[in-house]
């Protein structure tokens, strides 16, 4: 594995934050429904809406350029167990950002980690993966299968 690939291997926290960023507030609430209430929390910052400047690269792999902005909402919390959680999620859903920050905080708490992984992160990751697989399957059905025609030319 090259150094560049190694740098791309994500930590468990990066993985769960990526899953939380792609889940709606309604999905997060639905997956929390069977668990005891999350630890009480105090908001340190936000939830507040803002922007990120999305960058691309000239030619796809060259020097960076600014493509345009994207809406994002962020939130930071400290929960009753003393864990600090952060969230940056695309879009303007304040409830999603706050829930994601609370779940991020609780996931760092050994008492909460396993059941949150089992009830929230693992199933959401699976459904996000399934959505990607569905897109890939639809794309595959539109893949051109070339066949060669015999010509009359001799």
């Amino acid at each position: 594995m090259s150094a560049a690939q190694q740098a791309k291997v994500k930590s468990p926290r990066q993985l769960w934050m990526a899953v939380l960023a792609r889940a709606s507030a309604a999905q997060l609430q639905a997956h929390l429904a069977d668990l005891p209430p999350l630890p009480a929390h105090r908001v340190l910052r936000g939830p507040e809406a803002g922007l990120v400047m999305v960058r691309g690269r000239a030619g796809g792999g060259g020097a960076a350029f600014n493509l345009g902005e994207m809406s994002v909402t962020r939130c930071s919390v400290r929960d009753a167990a003393g864990q600090i959680g952060h969230a940056y999620v695309s879009g303007r859903d304040a409830m999603q950002a706050e829930l994601a920050a609370r779940i991020d905080a609780a996931l760092q708490n050994p008492e909460w980690h396993d059941r949150l992984m089992e009830a929230v992160i693992t199933p959401l990751a699976a459904s996000q993966q399934a959505a990607k697989a569905e897109l890939a399957a639809k794309a595959a059905a539109t893949r051109v299968q070339f066949f060669t025609l015999a010509t009359m030319r001799s």
Partner: peptide
């Protein structure tokens, strides 16, 4: 809206 950050260049590859 405030700008929080710039992203890493997106990987179209």
């Amino acid at each position: 809206l405030p700008r929080f950050a710039a992203t890493s260049p997106v990987e179209t590859a």
